[in-house]
Simulated assay, not measured.
Amino acid sequence: MTATAEPIASTRFRALGTTAELMVTDPDRLLAATDLLRAELRAVDETCSRFRDDSEIAALHRRAGSPVRVSPLLAEALQVALRAACATDGLVDPTVGQAVCDVGYDRDFAAIARDLAAPVRPAGEAPGWWRITADWPRREVVVPHGVRLDLGATAKAWAADRASVLVARRLGCGVLIGLGGDIAVAGPAPARGWQVAVGDDHAAVDPRRDPVIALASGGLATSSTVCRTWRRAGRTVHHIVDPRTGDMPGSCWRTVTVAAGTCADANAASTAAVVLGDQAPAWLAERRLPARLVALDGHVVRVAGWPDPDEEASA
């Protein structure tokens, strides 16, 4: 990401297994904003991480089959995940947890062995998001036996949405929060909008090389099949699983970037697009979601009003 020429302050740090980036329009608010963001991300990790035995979602798994009263934070995270599943007709499904583990993503990404000898044995079709039942007013959730949740397709984006709104309301300034490829903005934007460079890897984007767009509200999310990868028995695998098969989706796009009203909606759509493959442009266009899709050979497809190259460069 890149900042505008206005007096914007920024910082970055590690959180949720990725890089958290924070920008504010008032440099005097940066320290307070950083404290708010760190506390929010710590709470999300303690609630939603599938890599921590002491997380709330791990406790939910241990009580599978029984109604469990969950915290307001976990209730919100689960509702966001289930809404994404419904909106994508199950292309993004939080019940893929076992499938994601079976392809080797069973611990924090930094700890994954990059070349595993054991072959991938797809778990098959995900149990299905509709099997999660809940009494939301009572915040009671039932996860069936044999179902393992993975909120990876929505939790970081939702956390960016939550934290950006929190910081903007508490401190009264414009804010941009990026978590990996998930970006949310809130409060008054800079005069020319937040200038965001888009590329395969959020940590290596370069505005001198990669397209730059202006983001004034809502969220932006990029899903990539070329960054978080590792090897299993000579096969390259990545973190996006097709819930219909429990395996990697067919190769088509290296990167999909989507803009939407929230970062959570953008991320659900970008993930669904990777799963859909060559059907993704039509699916995104039907939903009027501006998107930039980069094929494995580098060919770029823009849909639903995504800026053309000249407009990107001048944003």
Rank of each mutant, 00 (worst) to 15 (best):
A315Q: 11
T222D: 00
V256N: 02
A295R: 10
A285K: 05
G193F: 00
R162Q: 14
A153Q: 05
A118R: 14
R131K: 14
S66R: 15
E46G: 12
M23N: 05
T257E: 03
I177H: 09
A157R: 06
D93E: 11
S217T: 13
A168C: 06
A204Q: 11
R235P: 04
S224G: 01
G178W: 07
A117Y: 00
R232W: 05
H61Q: 07
L30G: 04
D28W: 05
S10C: 13
P67M: 08
Q79H: 05
A189S: 13
P188Q: 08
A39R: 03
E311I: 04
E125Q: 15
D200H: 13
L16P: 06
C86E: 14
G97E: 06
P94F: 01
E40N: 12
K156R: 13
D247V: 00
T236L: 09
E140P: 10
V92I: 04
D26F: 08
D210T: 02
D200S: 14
L22N: 04
V80H: 00
R235H: 14
V303M: 08
V237E: 05
R138K: 07
E312C: 11
R29E: 10
R231Y: 12
H202P: 14
V92W: 03
A113Q: 15
G277F: 00
P307S: 03
T18P: 02
P188V: 10
W136P: 14
V141S: 07
R231V: 06
Q79L: 08
A9I: 01
P211E: 01
V142L: 14
V120F: 09
A85Y: 00
A43L: 11
V294C: 11
T25L: 10
P243F: 03
H299R: 15
G277P: 03
V301P: 04
A313F: 07
D106M: 07
G298M: 11
T47N: 00
R232Q: 06
A266D: 00
D89L: 12
A163S: 15
I240N: 05
